[in-house]
Design a protein around this nucleic acid. Structure first.
Lengths: 154, 154
DNA sequence: TTTTTGTTCATACTAAAGTATGAATTTACT
DNA sequence: AGTAAATTCATACTTTAGTATGAACAAAAA
């Protein structure tokens, strides 16, 4: 929670600085208002996306009712949830994040690619994979994927 | 993919309208530039968060797209997709031995294990795998297996 | 007969994958 | 407030995987 406050504080500070710089530019008539607004809109769009991705884990735990309220999110897509055997996943002691990594690995992605996609470091992916191999009693990711598909958990 | 485009289109449209409204307000000196930028920044911050949230939902569910349909339509679907498409294998330029290696790799075996099983050296297995990656347009054996299964050649 | 193709193998290399360990932070739960 | 589980990350290390290259050999095709 503190981190979020700190992050926002930094963002606000940076924005203020940028804003003052931009204002000077406007006075000099070298920068139209449209460009200024556009730049800031884009900036905050990116900030919003990045921020949301961090919060992603929390969002995930909230069921379908939350997703329906999101902007332009068609309910039909959301309703089609994973058919994976969640009971079995729990029994195997596979955590949510590990399962995420497993799904991506099943798509044939490398650790680096999975890391980029899930916004975590490659070493974290390695940790997850390593744990998955133990839990699925596999020795390679290919075997892990095969077993996971046989168990219908992906 | 269409949804994303549509969403962005709508967002851009709304932004344009809002922007024109805001511009009028500026001319009338009823709205300072600071407020304008602030409003837009906030607006896009929210848009970014919502957009990102929705993206995650979609991304999360896409991987299990195939299993989705196979589950809803009982096991019979899975059973009938057994025989490998030999015509396609030929078309892809995949030789018999390469196919053998591919099948073993799909079982999650290592190169050394495949070599032992097929009574060839590990370097031969590597050669076959390397050729397979080119022919299947894959970058890893995991991806090769995934593609091969999608093409129904294993 | 020459050429092509498939199969085999080796060597040397680079790039990933996976292991082991320790640690900071978060989240959920008591 | 404290604790256990989960998530994240790093570093150092070992093991596989994959690439590039060259080559030998047999069988089919030209």
């Amino acid at each position: 929670m503190r981190n979020i406050v700190i992050t926002f504080g930094i963002i606000c500070l940076c924005s203020l600085v940028l804003f003052q710089m931009a204002k000077v530019a406007i006075i000099k008539d070298t920068l139209p208002v449209e460009v200024l607004v556009g730049v800031f809109s884009l900036l905050f769009l990116v900030i919003g996306i990045l921020y949301s991705r961090r919060q992603h884990v929390i969002v995930q735990h909230v069921p379908s009712d939350h997703e329906n309220t999101t902007l332009l999110a068609p309910p039909s897509v959301v309703i089609e949830t994973k058919p994976a055997d969640k009971t079995l996943i729990e029994q195997m002691g596979i955590s949510k994040r590990e399962h995420d990594v497993l799904c991506e690995a099943a798509l044939g992605l490398s650790n680096a690619e999975i890391a980029q996609k899930l916004f975590i470091s490659e070493s974290t992916v390695k940790t997850h994979i390593s744990n998955l191999l133990v839990k699925l009693n596999a020795r390679r990711r290919t075997e892990a994927v095969k077993i996971a598909k046989e168990l219908n958990i992906i």
